[in-house]
Simulated scan of single mutants.
Amino acid sequence: MITYTLKVVEVRKETIDTVTICFKQPGLKKIKYLSGQYLTLIFRINSRRYIRPYSFSSAPGIDPNIEVTIKRVPGGIISNHINDRVAVGDIVEVMEPLGDFTLSKIPALPEAHLVLWGAGSGITPLLSIAKFALHNEVCDHITLVYGNKNSESVIFSDQIELLQSKFKNFSVFHFHSQLFISANNPGVIEGRINPKKVLSIMKQEKPKDKTIHYICGPVGLKESVKNQLSVLEIPEENIYTEDFETVKDPKEFESITTQNVEVVFDNTTYNVEVVKGKSILEAGLDSLLDLTYSCQTGNCLVCKAKLLSGAAKMIGVSKKDELSEDEYLLCCSYPISNNVKVLVTN
């Protein structure tokens, strides 16, 4: 895995609990990325290494700096560290850009209507995609559907307004769940995002088979939008989601018990107790092993390892077809026998 060291040139306050970290592009070997991808930041706090992925809020070819936006999470070690401690002049180690929540796989966009669905910090990759698509005339029309608690919690409000004023083919629906909306503010809708209401308006603008949908937000938002799109018979290949969390069925853990696992890492074998419910990766990190990982949702393949002995079970992995029979992603792997041994290969 390629890593870089980047210098912080600006820390921009977006809301009371959200900041954008702006990194200077390296002078010689510039970092190439696609709108919608994420950058993985590496910090060492109290002698422990922490790795977290954050979506780009900048767009390649549009913004001069590399930007990621981080919302404070209650109890979140890294999100709080970034919001409270990262400052201009700091040097941060990062991994190469990852992620496939991009426009690159979509054919025949010029006549399409691109619909971006987001809530809270889920706006981050969607803003990157919107900026790139608008400036490069990627598609015919773009609609952003964005849910927040109130106007004060809207991330990138200034940038969204600027895009609206500059591009006439960019429309925005704001949904505010904790605010009374006055009649003279038609651009804001009271309540949580209502896919049916939005799609009924959009139906008059473009045929349903010309809409392409990107969804980034809580599981509830993804499910409600996908359900409504299914009713309208929107093809599944026109629906893309960014998954920074996985929903796991408790029944899949019934055969799993606490086991000791041998982890071969950097030519050394470590004996790690993997408590029921924790993945091998989580147990390794708890044992202060500097294992390399990124998304922790079974998508990026960074935490790949070979199963040398015993039996393990992967739960929630979407890219099994990209793994050989003896390869496992430690973030989603759980021992189901008492003689499990894995060799970390990344």
Rank of each mutant, 00 (worst) to 15 (best):
22 C>W: 09
266 D>M: 13
9 V>H: 04
270 Y>H: 15
100 D>C: 04
109 L>R: 13
164 Q>L: 02
255 S>V: 14
255 S>R: 12
40 T>C: 05
26 P>E: 04
315 I>D: 12
336 I>N: 10
288 L>F: 14
147 G>V: 01
19 V>W: 00
101 F>K: 05
252 E>I: 03
302 V>Y: 03
48 R>Q: 13
248 K>D: 08
91 I>S: 13
308 L>C: 13
75 G>V: 11
169 N>D: 08
150 N>K: 02
53 P>F: 08
153 S>I: 01
285 L>W: 04
174 H>M: 00
328 Y>Q: 13
176 H>Q: 04
324 S>C: 07
157 S>L: 14
304 K>E: 10
83 N>T: 11
151 S>P: 00
197 K>Q: 14
221 L>D: 14
49 R>V: 13
289 L>M: 09
84 D>T: 06
6 L>S: 05
319 K>D: 10
173 F>P: 00
203 K>C: 05
268 T>R: 14
337 S>M: 07
309 S>Q: 06
80 N>Q: 13
17 D>N: 15
251 K>S: 15
257 T>V: 13
172 V>W: 00
242 E>G: 12
47 S>G: 03
180 F>R: 09
289 L>N: 08
27 G>T: 09
117 W>A: 05
18 T>W: 02
212 I>N: 04
313 K>P: 04
227 N>G: 06
18 T>A: 12
6 L>T: 09
245 E>L: 13
250 P>K: 09
178 Q>D: 14
258 T>V: 11
2 I>K: 15
305 A>Q: 09
318 S>L: 12
207 P>D: 15
162 L>R: 14
26 P>T: 12
10 E>Y: 03
16 I>P: 00
55 S>K: 08
96 E>P: 03
315 I>V: 14
237 E>P: 00
241 T>Q: 13
175 F>T: 00
211 T>W: 03
275 V>T: 15
57 S>N: 14
200 S>M: 08
181 I>R: 00
106 I>N: 05
119 A>C: 14
95 M>W: 01
228 Q>C: 08
160 I>D: 06
117 W>N: 12
190 E>I: 00
329 L>T: 13
19 V>H: 07
309 S>P: 11
180 F>G: 01
264 V>R: 12
332 C>K: 15
259 Q>A: 11
266 D>N: 15
217 G>R: 08
62 I>P: 05
218 P>M: 04
80 N>W: 10
308 L>Y: 08
87 A>Q: 15
128 S>H: 05
127 L>E: 11
81 H>E: 10
185 N>S: 03
109 L>S: 08
